[in-house]
Amino acid sequence: MPVLDRGLPIDDRWTDLADDQDIPAEGAVIVSLERWRTERDALTSRRDAVGVRLKSNQLATEIADDLGSLSLVALEFPKFRDGRAFSAARELRERFDYKGEIRAFGHIIPDQYLFLTRVGVDTVVVPADRVGPAWAHALKEISVAFQPALGSEEGTSLLRRHLKGTVPA
């Protein structure tokens, strides 16, 4: 499935592995949390990067100790209305200082894209028939944010400018 970065499809180097698929000898792979736990040694002994998928009921704390070995964390939206991944992404960035890629997948609508980037998500997996200009547009249509979060600090409201930590003293 197409992967979007800043609204546009990119060449994706990651292979998303189902639990019953063999781990290929080469190439970056994303596996479920369960598989990561049981096959961790096999996965880390390879040369290429590993990422872990979290279901929406799996908290960021579940992989907090492993983040040093992971180049990517993928967060699932089983339904676009299930907003737990917004907190998971933010915890990965703010609480665990995670610097790798955060990817959102599942049922996501363009109208959530700006929020995703503001909680620290880098890339979004979108079904081919839903790729379109709405995604890039979604990042531009609102230029003001009222609360501190992650990502660009442009377009700060009065409140945000005055909340400490967002402006140098």
Binding site: R81, D82, F86, S87, R90, L114, V119, A145, F146
Partner: peptide
Amino acid sequence: TMHPEFTY
């Protein structure tokens, strides 16, 4: 308003 984390 449009809180990125708490809108869903």
